[in-house]
Each structure stands twice: as C-alpha cells, then as structure tokens.
Computed example of a mutant assay.
Amino acid sequence: MFSFLKRDPARKLKKRHSMLLEQAMRAQRNGDIRTYSKLTAEAEELFVHIKKLSASDSQ
C-alpha cells in the first residue's frame, strides 16, 4: 500500500557508481593509470551488483 515510501536500495549504489567513474576520469586525466584501473574495476563490480538488484526487483 505504501510502497512509494520505501527506499530504493539501488539508488545509493548508483550514486556511488557515478562517483567512482568520476574519480576514475580525474585519475586518468592526471596520468594515474593504476588508480584509474582500480576505480574502473570497482565501478564495474558495483554495476553488476546494481543490475542483479534491478533484475530481482522486476521479478
């Protein structure tokens, strides 16, 4: 009945994903490829987790 009051668990993860990608972009622009690679890999793992959450919510 009050499902519109429930918080979306993926919303916080999407915000973190966006933040990680932005940090990775800045690291790449500064020439820090090692940090760029680490942040990009972490963002990809988070994206997979977000997709799993959204798939389970739609079922």
Rank of each mutant, 00 (worst) to 15 (best):
K14C: 09
L5C: 08
S56N: 04
K15S: 11
K12V: 14
Q23H: 09
E45N: 15
L21K: 04
E44V: 04
R29S: 05
D57L: 13
F47C: 07
S18G: 15
S37M: 09
N30T: 09
A43D: 02
Q59S: 11
L13T: 01
F47E: 11
A24T: 02
K51G: 03
S37L: 11
S18A: 08
T40A: 12
S56Q: 07
T40P: 01
R7K: 14
Y36Q: 06
M25E: 15
I33P: 04
S3I: 06
S3C: 08
L5K: 07
D32Q: 05
P9H: 06
L39W: 00
R26T: 11
I33L: 15
L5A: 15
H49D: 01
E44Q: 12
Q59G: 07
A27Q: 07
G31P: 00
E22P: 00
K15P: 00
Q28C: 03
R11I: 05
A55N: 11
S3A: 11
M25A: 15
A10Q: 00
R29K: 14
A24H: 02
M19N: 09
K38R: 14
K38L: 09
S58M: 13
L46H: 02
L39R: 06
L53I: 05
N30M: 13
K52H: 05
L39F: 02
L20H: 06
G31R: 00
R34V: 10
E42G: 02
S58Y: 10
K51V: 00
V48G: 03
L53M: 13
N30D: 14
H49C: 00
T35S: 10
I33V: 15
V48K: 10
F47N: 06
L46V: 00
G31T: 03
K38D: 14
K52F: 04
G31E: 00
K14P: 00
E44H: 08
F47A: 13
E45Q: 10
R34W: 10
I33S: 12
R16A: 04
M25Y: 09
T40I: 12
I50S: 01
D57P: 00
N30K: 13
K6H: 13
I33H: 14
H49F: 03
V48M: 12
S54Q: 10
R11W: 08
K14T: 08
T40K: 09
K12I: 10
Q28F: 04
K15C: 02
K6G: 07
F2Y: 11
I33F: 12
R26C: 11
Q23L: 06
L13W: 03
S54K: 09
A43G: 01
G31Q: 02
L39Q: 09
Q59H: 05
R26F: 14
F2L: 13
H17K: 08
A41S: 12
K14Y: 07
H49L: 05
F47D: 12
D8N: 15
R16S: 03
S37Y: 01
K52I: 06
R26G: 08
K12M: 11
D32R: 06
S18I: 02
L46I: 01
R26I: 09
F4R: 05
